[in-house]
Amino acid sequence: MNMVLHELKSCRKSTIVWAISIALMTIFFLSLYPSFSSSASLVKKILEGYPEPVRKAFGISIDDVTKFLGFYSYMFSYVVLLGAIQAMNYGISAISKEIKLKTADFLITKPVRRDEVLTSKLFASLISLIITDIIYLVTAFITAESVAKESFNIKLFFMISVTLFFVQVIFMSIGILLSTIMRKIKSTISISLGVVFAFYIIGMLQATLNDKAMKYITPFKYFDAGYIIKNSSYDMTFVIISLFVVVVSILLSYVFFLKRDIYAV
């Protein structure tokens, strides 16, 4: 428990900054919606001017984007992108931070088991993500209520919104796995940006090429807002894949972390 509190304290600032950034972006994007919907036909015309592959890559569907949930899910993809970077940062830095700052010696020579150390870090990261996501949800909902003239399906709105957390957990798990495998990580942000954008670009390619197989590769496509709106449910195949990725990554992290040598300097 003392370790969880210590971790939470140490990433308090970063959680606040991420939450505020994501919330501000949401407010900004959603406040564009009224002007978007009032000139729907014009917007549609402009969008038709873009080549189809580009529209697909950015996840713009002309029919949906002028409806609130369509517009929201378009914007939401960027929220998920930011959220994924945050989660990946937490995952990677959980262990690599201790190694890089050489504080691992301090922690590991205390009377705690290594799995307790990892579990504490896992919990602290999860709590930080949950706090971020609650702030996001509240901000998004209040803004949505005030900008959407028509009524929208609140259940669907939340079903889409909480996928932010799901995708974050996937990226956090991958991040933790990376940090336990790699001997020393010099820069957390460069690796997390690299990995997250790689997956994001695969996602854009997948949308453009409409390649079914590629969907399995990138977590950004596991919780497709279009599918949720159409079916009022999540695609179970991808729910199972997500669980699988998370469980395997975390289990492997424990295996690697328990066995690895903590080198001096």
Binding site: S10, L101, K102, T103, D105, F106, T109, K110, P111, V112, R113, A264, V265
Partner: peptide
Amino acid sequence: GPEIKKDIGYLPSEVFYYD
């Protein structure tokens, strides 16, 4: 490890703490 470390005090050659 965890059990015996209750009664061990360790001073590393280079000290690094949470800055």
